[in-house]
Design a protein around this nucleic acid. Structure first.
Lengths: 356, 356
DNA sequence: GAGGAATTTGCACACGTGTGCAATTTGGTT
DNA sequence: AACCAAATTGCACACGTGTGCAAATTCCTC
């Protein structure tokens, strides 16, 4: 079984066996109307029987189209990226494109090698789903001369096509949810300070408070880095404050997980003593103790949208460069009303709230 | 800036500008000794200045080598796969190979499309890192006529090249660790019953007990499916038993996470009342409550090994078909000595153990 | 059956790169 | 200066596929 690994059959082989020229075979297999339907059918049968598989390299050489999209990500180990990639892949496949994987692992040398590989395989477009593209990286990509779509890019660059979730709106969603539960003393544990997403979430947090008449207190914003340790430190810091918050909005779920742990260590029950809300809705958010209430980014849709955008760009269509997709609230069990005895810091506001 | 997206420069363009034939350019860029070092240097300079990037398709057409490896995975959403892919990619890159991603999402139609894509791009080899390759999938891959290496394959197929972690040894490691802590009543919550890995872990569990003189009790093996629900159900079942186990070995970490939750719901403290050990050491094992003690599979090394194996196969070397890498114990906080009052079921054994 | 239009086929070139072999140039020796 | 060997270069073809255009065949009409 399994024929010897000799040369693969080409259209010339088929042509010889069918007694026609290779042009006819080419046309028959591509479904051209320029060939007699009967011979076309005969050739297709023969091709199938001989196990013919077209050679993508040869075809792309003559058509100057490769049908390959470069997918650049820092690392697959980021659980956040999986869904995005799934969305990208699905649309790409439907449109007959293939994915060429390039991970950089934040190693500049490897980034360069990856871009070179993309260039050599003549990708028709690039999607960058890396949460932190190096500043030096992008210029190399741009030198490829093909459309690029960034997903959740960190830099502000209005000229560039990008798809992002609406971090600002997500933050407002989180904070107003907490306020609806009755919280007024709400803290924020931030992400990496340079990140665009952090700036937006911070802004949303502050605006939501301000809009509700609660002046944001800088003491309740502690700097983090998006990792669990940041959540732990953050909670420790916040518990030392003279007036403790009753709820904490975390930059992301990883931070929230650290926060959950620190709260537990400090003997606080969640959500009875302290409410904690995350951001991202990673796979594990459903399995923390208690299950984490969080803001979900539409990861899958972001992937799909980015790829659709790229397809439109490839067809020369005009496309609005910056797309934002809304986040949504996922209620689980880490948030609840503030504890009974908690003293309102803004009594006038609470008084107002109690009026109706 | 950024020149117009006109035709890319080819070696012929360089040849024209340098006043030589394209053959000379080809040789110069490939570092052939058949060209005058001075002109070679001149050509290389010119090529760099003109922004030349070799066309992989054209090259592979004439060399019949594509330097592409197909990477088949069911889904990236499996957190287990990320490290494996990282290992694969690293070795591939070092050896000058590129990765072509094909995910199937267990949809037969898409699987077929993916394999066709692999065939058309003439991948030189395939690595299958999918935890559950469909029975029908593999034959199609084999029809490609290129070497295939499976990672943690589920089917028994001695003819096929594969890299796997040693599930049996890992299970023995887990159970003997629990016994060393003093446990004798150890349960097993299984994975999907058809899975090879489950059979091996189950066997290791039973053997380890038997070897220690503890007859395995079928009532303490409950069937699961590798998902958190299975852990929850499993714990519930086990707690109904007339004699309760003091420790539970779970098929994987996801199951263990469910088990942790069920134990908590039942009012049991882990590890004081019940020890729980998992398998896989997924990213989140470090963040459960309590942090999960588990058996780590050498994921990164498995990826590296699989790719190295494939490289050797591509060079026509003889390779032993089945490779097993040992697992190791990762001690965290979900296991401890059995509770004081727990009644030993095998008193003679405990008596022995107490002798020295 | 002749003539012309419509259909079908094949020739030849193109895509970009690599390489065997012959042709040309260079360098050294007498 | 003449000759030969070594070094360097170019010609021509190959890889597998697609396509414009001319050639060949088929079909229809009178």
């Amino acid at each position: 079984m399994g024929r010897r690994a000799s040369r693969r059959v080409s259209i010339k082989d088929i042509a010889r066996r069918a007694g026609v020229s290779h042009s006819t075979v080419s046309r028959a297999l591509r479904g051209s109307p320029l060939v007699n339907p009967r011979t076309a059918e005969r050739i297709r049968r023969l091709a199938a029987r001989m196990g013919y598989v077209p050679n993508a390299a040869a075809r792309s050489l003559v058509t100057t189209r490769t049908s390959i999209i470069g997918l650049v990500i820092t690392t697959l180990a980021d659980p956040f990226l999986a869904e995005i990639v799934r969305g990208v892949e699905e649309v790409a496949l439907e449109a007959g494109y293939r994915l060429f994987l390039a991970t950089s692992n934040a190693d500049p040398e490897r980034e360069l090698a990856a871009v070179r590989a993309l260039a050599e395989s003549r990708v028709e477009g690039v999607i960058v789903a890396s949460s932190r593209v190096g500043e030096l990286y992008l210029p190399y990509l741009e030198a490829l001369g093909v459309p690029i779509v960034l997903i959740n890019q960190q830099r502000e660059a209005p000229l560039i096509y990008s798809v992002a979730s609406d971090s600002y709106q997500g933050a407002v969603l989180a904070v107003s949810y907490l306020m609806r539960l009755g919280h007024t003393r709400i803290a924020y544990i931030s992400g990496p300070p340079m990140a665009r997403s952090d700036r937006l979430r911070r802004a949303g947090y502050q605006e939501a408070l301000t809009a509700a008449g609660i002046p944001p207190d800088p003491a309740w914003v502690v700097e983090g880095n998006g990792r669990p340790e940041a959540g732990e430190w953050g909670i420790q810091r916040l518990l030392e404050a003279p007036v403790r918050p009753t709820a904490v909005f975390c930059y992301n779920d990883m931070t929230a997980i650290g926060a959950l742990r620190a709260a537990r260590v400090a003997g606080l029950r969640v959500p009875e003593d302290l409410s904690i809300i995350g951001f991202d809705d990673i796979l594990f958010a459903a399995y923390t103790e208690p299950p984490l209430t969080t803001i979900a980014q539409p990861k899958y849709e972001m992937g799909r949208t980015a790829m659709s955008m790229l397809l439109r760009l490839l067809q020369g269509e005009r496309v609005s460069p910056q797309l934002q997709l809304p986040c949504r609230l996922v209620e689980r069990a880490s948030c609840g009303p503030p504890p009974e005895g908690s003293i309102p810091v803004v009594p006038h506001l609470l008084a107002e709230r109690r009026l109706p």
